[in-house]
Amino acid sequence: MLNLIKNEWMKIFKRSGTYVMIGILLLVTTVAGGFIKYQDSKGSVPDNSDWKKGLQVQNEEYNKHLNEMGSSASKDVKEYYERNIAINNYRIEHDISPNEEYSVWGFVSNISDLIDFVGLFVIIIAAGIVSSEFNWGTIKLLLIRPIKREKILLSKYITVLLFGLFMLFILFAYSAVLGAILFGLPENPLSYLNYYAGEVKEQNIIVHLIITYGMKSVSMLMLATMAFMISAAFRNSSLAIGLALFLLFMGEQVTRLISMKYEWAKYSLFANTDLLQYIEGTPMVEGMTLGFSAVMLILYFLLFQVIAFGVFKKRDVAA
């Protein structure tokens, strides 16, 4: 099995396209860093010791808004105000100033938005890893080795996952290094204030970042698996890339629209990929829980795998 994965890894890294992907990822991160640095130098952090008063004024403002809107306030808006009020109160009680310097961790956290970008590349690899063999004609030489087809397919899937981890690692490590150079390390270890279900909790910033990266990678994982399934079952990499990318960038919005009207939206894949909604925020459809989403994700995952392996195992290779 290790040998098979080594083979797949070799095939990925002997192609120049892979290096272009890594290059683009580094470039975009660098540009984002430069941009933030440029903005950052314009506005300096206000160093007023009266921040507690400021927060109190802000909270009063929020409460006024909430009362004015009353029951007509939408769920999202209400949630937003409540969250800010709770965090502000926590800051006042525990003497944590909101005026902290933008540092490496802030940058790494901002850069986590680029995970969708990593998703793009992982989907391209996942969509090509089986169908390319068909396109190149090499599948005929690959499947006449004394190795079961399932094992070959599994090694390809594991390679896709490893490639995803590799790209995430590059993003995390590079943004941490770049952030440290551009924005410096914070003087004292920061914590992140997390608001969930009406409560505010302090979290170690690095733990928080790793959780954020992990959670944001869920939709990447699911869509890469879907692209892999299409690639293995239909041997069509264009369809796999097109569909998976469309869903990666549009799936959540479309599901959000549907969820406003229909409750069944919660069974769609994209209502469940954003697990951060349970940790900080509110679920897309009322009544959804982390457990529910986990079960849905596992079901979708199994569905994709069953189709991929079922079709690939049976298929007559006539290309």
Binding site: N7, K14, R15, S16, G137, T138, L141, R145
Partner: peptide
């Protein structure tokens, strides 16, 4: 060899052989 001997064109001949040798 089934039909044409399709190889991974972006790798060297030796790397192709390494690839297949790992599978037996």
């Amino acid at each position: 060899i089934v039909e044409n001997p399709e190889m991974y064109k972006f790798m060297s001949g030796y790397q192709n052989l390494i690839h297949y040798s790992r599978m037996s």
